[in-house]
Design a binder for these strands. Structure first.
Lengths: 321, 321
DNA sequence: TTGTAAGCGTTATCAG
DNA sequence: CTGATAACGCTTACAA
């Protein structure tokens, strides 16, 4: 069916190797200009496309990198994925996307990974790396990264403290934390910062739990909560999707944001800038994180026995209202 | 380095084939329960992972599907990608994402495609299929699909007409169309509908052109336009990202939406529901489109010489303010 | 029920 | 500068 090196070779009465050499165009291979021309011409005319599987089999490289995150439905991870996509394409790599939750060790999603022919993995989500059945290079990103892999940490603690303090300082009497309960709550920078600040100031903690990370869930949850317990005047949300859902839920009830309730999100997704008024949030250095992570991975791809590479980036609070 | 079938075979004193048979677990292969156990056990213990390249080389299948769109930075395409991602994973396929613009025939992005070892391609963007240097099955989606490939068309014309008519009917005297100029403007349902309705009603057309599809560009463009030419009281935007950027630009100038300017977008991305007030838009049947497209592709994967499959879906106007 | 042999399309290696 | 040959790890087809 498809045209192979052999086809071209036979057509031109040369060996497969000659064709391979011309097409791969390496500086170390010397070919007569005449045959070079003939081969290129024939390849073009016959519509030759290299077979990646065959190449991968012999070289051991696929030029594919996976980007894994807890959920590709989250706007934040989509933005991260987009940045990686650009970076990878620039270096002639392809991106394969996947989801991976700690609970789903044996789910379809992570099971697929075992089969993956990948040159490396970029994974967002602290400690998530440990669940990947993969022996190649892995770079972990996010808060509280794995301690075995290369890692680009993002420290959300200082900005989270500032966020909560800012709510209190601007006069809020009742500041709640809206979050989706997870397994590693006690390690979560945002959760810890919220708890610490409230205790330090002798305030009562108030947690509003959404069933999942979706906007719609947050929208419903806040309304139920307000009906039952009245409305806090400051809300620190665990991420921007939750913040946006909460915002909408409050507006559904004719509650003014930010005049009656001040709201702060986390992650810094583009959407926060386009709300009216723009939403305050903790902006993660997405671009820097992606560039660094890809850099780490590329280095390790070149030289496997490098010492562990790590870097910690700071997120910053951006107040917009 | 990695464990192969041969390693397991030698360890157990059986042939590679026996191991392969056990691991592939096909109903047509009969294996003694004893050896089956031994093989599974050894494979698990030795950490066997099948080499996809080798398998792909012999079977001719990679179990990878590409999703291509004009821009992975657009929220709409990210939503489409997300839906496909779920569908593909469910069927044990992986998704590779790529961008493809008609102008960039020879860019890095599309060049990469020529090398792709893919079982099939899902591509959003009318006529975009024609630019893909790929011989395998392709399903095209969106308005004005290719006429050679399987296609899931989305008809935006009726809803676009309704949108423009709704703006005029609600009293707008000056309705403009905000868009990014492209090559196929005259085939664009939204553009055509806008033009037709305005001419029919004897109104003057007004086009506001953004330099690209980003929100930030729309935000700046609308402000410049309003300063120069005053403000229309109705805006039909070519997509939701542009609508959202425009919304923000108007709010920057203290212009009320929807009281001073009514705004209608297109695509139906999630964000439109979370603005205040929620934004009117033309909702595309994303999920149905994805399911249908993947269905078409799966069918063709099974049987290559099927007659051309097509379906046309309707978008619907959703007025929210 | 299990084994043997061949080959998928490339690239690496060494010889000419 | 070019060619022959042997892998790479797996599956298909056929034999035992």
């Amino acid at each position: 069916m498809a045209v192979t090196l052999k086809d071209i070779a036979e057509y031109l009465n040369v060996s497969k190797m000659t064709v391979s050499r011309v097409l791969n165009n390496r500086p170390s291979d010397f070919i007569t200009e005449a045959t070079r021309q003939r081969v290129w011409e024939a390849a073009r005319k016959m519509g030759y496309v290299p077979n990646r599987a065959a190449r991968a089999l012999v070289t051991g490289q696929t030029r594919q990198i996976a980007f894994l995150s807890p959920s590709m439905g989250s706007r934040f991870f989509q933005e991260v994925a987009y940045h990686f996509h650009q970076l990878l394409l620039n270096d002639q790599y392809e991106m394969v996307s996947g989801e991976l939750e700690p609970q789903q060790k044996d789910s379809k999603h992570s099971r697929g990974l075992a089969n993956l022919g990948l040159d490396g993995i970029l994974v967002y989500g602290g400690q998530l790396g440990s669940f990947i059945p993969y022996r190649g290079p892995i770079v972990n990103m996010g808060p509280h990264c794995s301690e075995t892999f290369d890692a680009v940490n993002v420290d959300l603690y200082p900005a989270s403290r500032q966020a909560v303090e800012s709510l209190l300082d601007s006069g809020a009497k009742r500041v709640a934390h809206v979050l989706t309960p997870g397994t590693q709550q006690e390690f979560d920078d945002r959760y810890r910062a919220y708890t610490h600040v409230l205790r330090e100031r002798g305030k009562k903690e108030e947690y509003i739990l959404t069933p999942d990370w979706s906007r719609s869930a947050a929208r419903e949850t806040i309304q139920t909560h307000v009906k039952k317990h009245g409305c806090p005047d400051g809300l620190f949300c665990a991420n921007d999707d939750i913040a946006i859902g909460t915002y909408r839920g409050l507006r559904d009830m004719q509650i003014g944001v930010p005049d009656q309730v001040r709201l702060i999100g986390c992650d810094g997704i583009e959407d926060t800038q386009y709300l009216d008024p723009p939403m305050s949030t903790i902006v993660q250095p997405i671009q820097e994180m992606c560039i660094t992570a890809w850099d780490f991975l590329k280095r390790r791809l070149k030289k496997g026995n490098l010492p562990r590479q790590t870097k910690t980036l700071e997120a910053r609070l951006v107040i917009r209202d």
